[in-house]
């Protein structure tokens, strides 16, 4: 019994070390920009870099737009499939998995062919058009996570009965989704949102081929030209991702107050 517990701790320790040692090493390295000793100068230099601020806020805006558009598509779709067309679920699940199967590079070459300046819909001809295209690409990229998160949320509530209860009280479909379904799956929706944000913040391929200055592209640039700042950036992006994950956990903790069902 005791040795069993000891072994599980040893395995846990090894696993944790496998993840944490490189991270700690990176962190330690990022502090050694000066000979005299550890400083946070690399971080100061990153944060004061105008391109960092610009690329990070750009990524954030695109991410939030992708989340909003994604939710407007995914929530009604997942809701409808659960309520009216459960036989379509395997097909829908397969479609939402496509972005994981098809590499981003293929997606982006497809976009470039479809929407170039000599195409019927020349989105790539303008900056705004390219921004829109990038956002939509991220919506597609986030689809597998978003759909699964929302679908899991829907599974925890009795979608049909709640819908009918609201319907017979006079509510129409849009009202039912907005006032009854959505508030009850908000935790699942937010976890999908934070996952999407984490993906968007780190994305490189699509943005770089569409020539957008996103955070991922900035990281790559800095990485190619500097020594200590990339380490600091790596730590920063870890903190952001983990922060997002932590938010999901935190929200799940608060969930029972409103979302628990008998």
């Amino acid at each position: 019994m005791k040795s069993g517990k000891l072994w599980s701790w040893i395995i846990f320790g090894l696993g944790a070390a496998y993840f944490l040692v490189p991270l700690l090493a990176t962190f330690e390295f990022s502090l050694r920009i000066r000979r005299e000793g550890y400083t946070f100068d690399a971080y100061t230099s990153v944060f004061s870099d105008g391109r960092f601020q610009a690329s990070f806020s750009y990524s954030l805006i695109v991410g939030v737009c992708a989340i909003v558009i994604g939710l407007l598509i995914v929530v009604p779709a997942a809701y409808y499939v659960r309520l009216r067309a459960p036989h379509l679920r395997p097909i829908i699940e397969f479609i939402t998995l496509l972005p994981l199967i098809i590499p981003a590079i293929i997606l982006v070459f497809g976009y470039i062919r479809m929407y170039n300046t000599s195409s019927p819909l020349p989105l790539l001809g303008t900056n705004l058009g390219t921004d829109i295209l990038l956002t939509l690409a991220y919506v597609a990229l986030a689809l597998p996570y978003m759909y699964r998160a929302v679908d899991t949320g829907l599974r925890t509530i009795d979608v049909q009965t709640l819908t009918e209860a609201a319907n017979i009280l006079g509510a129409n479909q849009a009202t039912i989704i907005a006032r009854v379904i959505f508030p009850n799956i908000i935790v699942a929706v937010l976890s999908g949102a934070f996952l999407t944000l984490a993906i968007v913040i780190g994305e490189f391929t699509i943005a770089s081929l569409l020539n957008r200055q996103v955070f991922g592209v900035y990281m790559q640039n800095v990485g190619a030209n500097r020594a200590f700042e990339p380490a600091a950036l790596a730590v920063i992006s870890f903190v952001i991702t983990w922060g997002a994950m932590g938010m999901i956990q935190l929200l799940a903790r608060f969930a029972p107050k409103t979302a628990r069902r008998d």
């Binding site: 709640l162 009918e164 319907n167 017979i168 129409n172 508030p183 009850n184 409103t258």
Partner: peptide, 20 residues
């Protein structure tokens, strides 16, 4: 008429209160 136009009240076996 759709259910929301019928002005009928209904009580379900599974309560179906809005949890939020």
């Amino acid at each position: 008429l759709a259910p929301n136009q019928r002005k009928i009240g209904m009580v379900f076996q599974a309560y179906a209160l809005f949890p939020n």
